[in-house]
C-alpha cells in the first residue's frame, strides 16, 4: 500500500527538504521542479542549490570623504590598538562609546554598524586624553568630531529623533546665560529633578544635608551674591545677534 501512495509523487515546496529552512531566504534557493540530466530524473530536492551569502563590497568613498575633512584627515593611520578607548574619559561610563571601534567602522565605510551607536556617538567630552596617548597620532579626539559630522549627514532623521534637544532645558539654559551671563547650578539641578519627577528627593536627606553644609560654610551666600559679569549688556546683545543670525541661516536652508 505504501507503493500506491508513492505513485503520485507529491510536488514539494521549494527547498522543503532543507533542514532549518527558515534560516534561508527564498531567493537564495535554486531548485528546478522538473529536471532530467542524462536521462536521470533529478527533479526537486535532488538539484537543490543554496547560493552563498555575499556582503556588499567595502565602500571606500566614505573613508575618502572623512579623510578630506580637517578633523578626519588622519583616519588612514589608525591600526586599531585601542589605546584611545583605553584612555577615554567617557568609555567607562558609556561602554558602548568606543572611539577605536568607531574609527574602524569609518575606515571600512560600515554605516550599518555606525548607525547602531547614534545615541552614544556624541558623548566625547573633548578631553584629548586619547590624542595624547595614540601611538600613531591619529588624533582620535578630532576623529570623534568627524564622526559627529558624518552621523549628522547620513542619519539626519535618527539624529533628530534620538537626540532631540529638550526644549524646556534649553530655555532654562538660554534664559540663565542671556539673563545672568552664567549658569545657576542650583537652579539647573532643581529644574532637572523636577522634570524627571524626582521632586520628593529635593526635600530628602541628601539635599537637606547639602543645603545645610553650604549654608554653614558660606558657599550658599556667596552664590547668591554672585552678580552679573561686568558690562554684561554688551555681551548679551552680541550673543543674541549671533543666535538670530544662526536662526536665519537655518531657516534659509530649510
Amino acid at each position: 500500500m505504501a507503493l500506491e501512495k508513492q505513485e503520485h509523487r507529491p510536488v514539494a515546496e521549494k527547498g522543503e527538504h532543507i533542514i532549518a529552512r527558515h534560516l534561508i531566504e527564498d531567493d537564495s534557493i535554486k531548485e528546478e521542479k522538473n529536471l532530467v540530466i542524462d536521462g536521470v530524473d533529478v527533479s526537486g530536492r535532488w538539484n537543490t542549490f543554496i547560493l552563498s551569502r555575499v556582503d556588499a563590497e567595502y565602500d571606500r568613498s566614505f573613508f575618502r570623504e572623512i579623510k578630506d575633512t580637517v578633523v578626519g584627515s588622519r583616519i588612514n593611520r589608525c591600526w586599531q590598538c585601542g589605546m584611545c578607548t583605553a584612555s577615554c574619559t567617557v568609555t567607562p561610563l558609556y561602554r558602548r562609546f568606543n572611539p577605536r571601534a568607531f574609527i574602524y567602522m569609518m575606515q571600512l565605510g560600515n554605516l550599518k554598524e555606525l548607525k547602531k551607536y547614534i545615541d552614544v556617538a556624541w558623548r566625547c567630552v573633548g578631553c584629548y586624553k586619547c590624542s595624547q596617548r595614540c601611538p600613531k597620532q591619529v588624533n582620535p579626539a578630532e576623529m570623534m568630531e568627524a564622526l559627529g559630522l558624518v552621523i549628522k549627514k547620513y542619519f539626519p532623521e535618527e539624529v533628530e529623533s534620538k537626540l532631540k534637544v529638550d526644549e524646556d532645558v534649553k530655555k532654562i539654559y538660554d534664559d540663565m546665560i542671556l539673563g545672568d551671563g552664567r549658569l545657576d547650578l542650583a537652579k539647573l539641578h532643581t529644574s532637572a529633578m523636577r522634570k524627571t519627577g524626582r521632586t520628593k528627593e529635593l526635600l530628602g536627606k541628601i539635599e537637606r544635608d547639602t543645603i545645610f553644609k553650604m549654608a554653614k560654610d558660606g558657599r550658599a551666600f556667596s552664590i547668591l551674591r554672585l552678580g552679573k559679569p561686568r558690562n554684561w549688556g554688551k555681551s548679551k546683545e552680541a550673543i543674541e545677534n549671533y543666535l538670530k543670525n544662526i536662526k536665519s541661516i537655518e531657516n534659509s536652508e530649510n
Binding site: 552563498s52 555575499v54 563590497e57 586599531q80 574602524y104 567602522m105 554598524e113
Partner: peptide, 26 residues
C-alpha cells in the same frame, strides 16, 4: 574563498574587531 557575483572571488572571514562574519567580494 568562494566564487562571487560578477566574476569576483569572495573572502569569508570574521572581523574580530567588530565581531561577526563577513563575505566580501574582491
Amino acid at each position: 574563498i568562494t566564487s562571487g557575483p560578477d566574476n569576483t572571488v569572495v573572502c569569508k572571514g570574521e572581523d574580530t574587531l567588530l565581531r561577526g562574519p563577513f563575505e566580501i567580494p574582491f
